[in-house]
């Protein structure tokens, strides 16, 4: 396995100060709990799971974007380059900005409007990137931006537009173009198409996929939509309540989900052309301010055993490349 980034026992969440009546009250949202995972070179890795399970938080932590109230509680993220290892979790924001962000790892946040300054023309977003990171003059940068826009298959007139003048799909393609500009090793995309219709979604995802194929880098896609993982990702991790519960090849997980939560998610998916009765899950995901004891899925799990509410199951390799954190899977064999 050719690993480009690894997270080891990564934990983090939001430390909130609640204004109580008298004493100061600290509340911790346990959004990412003991997550270990490895990203390979030249792959599309998916992070799946329902809203609020910690996908965006995990992605931010991998990027090293620790803005308050988000804090790192433990564990580490290491970026592995040909010249050695870069410990993301111990770099200052300044160092990350200089050495890692955009150049080595780029990040597309959940809302593209968070990347594009609404008062700045698209053209100037590109020019700024070139002048800051590639030390070009403004004129050189502009010429380069025009060439680049053509290459990415975007119409040239987007350059003179302001972000709000573009359709959601076009804006997202611009953000993707920006994120790929400096040829990063890793691209982290958080729900890159959740605001888009299926057809625009496909156009945007195809752009990401083609770029990955060409650059042979690592693309991480966070999406709550399992369908997207089904058509895009090579491997995926499924998250539930701050934990990764299963990791494996996407096709294998869909064919034979091992964790009861993965199973429930996949079983609940309606498919065009298949009228078979589907069943969902009872209950609802826990409040991460007070996650359940033991396995966090146990209150909703149809297979729960006494141990499940007592001790959290560890991630276990079931077969090469396939990891599951579940007592049921650990007992069998």
């Amino acid at each position: 396995m050719d690993v480009v980034l690894k997270a080891d026992d990564l934990s983090g969440g939001y430390l909130l100060v609640q204004k109580g009546s008298s004493e100061k009250n600290e509340v911790y949202v346990d959004a990412v709990s003991d997550v270990s995972l490895q990203l390979e070179r030249n792959e599309i890795f998916g992070i799946a799971g329902e809203s609020g399970c910690g996908k965006s938080t995990l992605l931010k932590m991998i990027y090293g974007l620790l803005e308050p109230p988000l804090i790192l509680r433990g564990g580490s993220v290491t970026f592995i380059t040909v010249d050695g290892e870069i410990p993301i979790t111990s770099l200052s924001e300044n160092d990350l900005r200089r050495r890692v962000w955009w150049k080595k790892i780029s990040y597309i946040p959940q809302s593209s409007m968070n990347v594009l300054n609404p008062t700045v023309r698209i053209r100037d977003h590109f020019i700024e990137m070139f002048t800051f990171h590639a030390r070009m003059t403004k004129n050189e940068a502009y010429a380069e931006a025009r060439k680049y826009i053509d290459q990415m298959g975007l119409p040239r007139d987007v350059l003179s537009a302001f972000p709000h003048q573009l359709s959601g799909g076009m804006r997202q393609r611009v953000v993707i173009a920006l994120s790929l500009l400096l040829n990063p090793n890793i691209v982290l995309a958080d729900e890159p198409t959740s605001a888009l219709d299926v057809i625009s979604q496909k156009v945007v995802l195809t752009m990401l996929e083609e770029a990955q194929k060409e650059l042979k880098n690592t693309l991480v896609i966070v999406s709550h939509d399992l369908g997207i993982h089904g058509v895009m990702t090579h491997r995926m991790g499924i998250m539930y309540a701050g934990k990764i519960v299963e990791i494996g090849k996407t096709e294998e997980i869909f064919e034979d989900p091992l964790h009861p939560y993965s199973e429930a998610l996949i079983r609940s998916l309606p498919k065009l052309g298949d009228k078979k009765q589907r069943t969902g899950l009872g209950g609802h995901p826990p409040d991460l301010k007070k996650p359940p004891s033991g396995c966090r899925f146990h209150p909703r799990c149809p297979y729960a055993m006494p141990i499940c509410s007592r001790t959290p199951p560890k991630m276990k390799m079931i077969k090469p490349g396939r990891y599951v954190a579940c007592w049921k899977n650990s007992m069998e064999e």
Binding site: E50, S268, L269, Q277, R278, G280, L281
Partner: peptide, 11 residues
């Protein structure tokens, strides 16, 4: 609504 609950509503 989340996928695992979506199907319950449709049912």
């Amino acid at each position: 609504v989340d996928a695992s609950i979506r199907i319950n509503i449709l049912n």
